[in-house]
């Protein structure tokens, strides 16, 4: 039974309220509320609503860094000019989350902190090598630290956040002009889809040769995952059929999907390969 509701106006207020026993950060509520409703998790005794914290609501481009507040909505990511220019794959992923009703509530921070292997924002942010700013209550006011996104996810529903920490901001560098980027997710139905698998690719090429590559996957491992093996298969090479084959083989090897109600392990491996192959073939055509 939830007894307390705190509408924090500042990060300080939020972390202070979070230090109460049984308190939970509440942002969009789109993941939390259905779980409360179905009694899958107990309701917290206190809810700390951080949507009123102004600094968590902004998208900024400063000193060459894009910073996205943790409470920025998916519908804002989808349409914001900075995001569309600097990270179109993030805008695309946001646009493909659920439906307008959810996109108007779900926050990017919530999507990450919920730590679903299927979190749609995670794959683009892995590709962007984002850094996450977290805050907690310190001895001299607010204590902050950075967590690279690659170290953020620990398992389904589990993150590197320590008790009392709040994710405040997500920072990344814009994708360089001329780079190729793609993100796609696969579900069994076009609408309202939870990814059976998702894949993203960012490539930097000089005269056709791949000099930088990032690959990431969703829904095919306990956490959203960077594809280091697939990346290695590409670096220094031209995107020939053979290289694409090698990359796809590497990808299928480095993921560890499970069989669940949505798809089998084998099919997920299959789909990751298809999505990746299609992206690379598309890139080869540019």
């Amino acid at each position: 039974m939830t007894k307390t509701y705190v509408a924090a106006q500042t990060v300080e207020e939020a972390v202070r309220a979070l230090s109460q026993t049984g308190a939970t950060i509440f942002a969009g509520g789109t993941d939390l509320m259905p779980r409360w409703f179905r009694n899958l998790v107990p309701k917290p005794t206190a809810v700390v609503d951080i949507k009123g914290v102004e600094q968590l609501r902004s998208i900024k481009l400063a000193d060459g860094d894009v910073s996205v507040g943790a409470c920025v909505l998916m519908s804002e990511l989808e349409t914001h000019s900075i995001i569309r220019a600097a990270a179109p794959i993030l805008a695309e992923a946001a646009a493909r989350i659920a439906c307008p009703q959810i996109r108007n509530r779900a926050t990017v921070g919530g999507n990450l902190c919920n730590a679903s292997p299927a979190a749609d924002a995670a794959v683009p942010l892995l590709l962007l090598d984002a850094v996450l700013d977290v805050a907690s209550s310190g001895s001299k006011g607010l204590a902050t630290r950075e967590i690279p996104i690659a170290e953020f996810f620990r398992g389904p529903g589990s993150t590197a956040l320590r008790p009392g920490e709040v994710l405040t901001c997500i920072r990344f560098k814009p994708l360089p002009t001329g780079s190729f980027c793609a993100w796609d997710k696969f579900g069994t139905r076009p609408a309202m889809e939870i990814a059976v698998a998702s894949v993203g690719v960012v490539l930097h090429r000089v005269e056709g040769r791949v000099v930088g590559a990032r690959v990431a996957y969703g829904s095919v491992a306990p956490i959203p995952l960077r594809g280091h093996q697939a990346e290695s298969a590409l670096i220094g090479r031209l995107l020939s059929d053979e290289v694409v084959d090698l990359c796809v083989t590497a990808a299928r090897k480095e993921i560890s999907p499970i069989t669940d109600v949505r798809a089998s392990e084998g099919y997920r491996r299959e789909i990751v390969g298809v999505l990746l192959r299609r992206m690379l073939e598309n890139a080869a055509g540019f």
């Binding site: 509320m33 409703f37 009703q101 509530r105």
Partner: peptide, 9 residues
């Protein structure tokens, strides 16, 4: 903005 009122406190 359109929202699902079951997901709003």
């Amino acid at each position: 903005k359109v929202v699902n009122s079951c997901l709003v406190l």
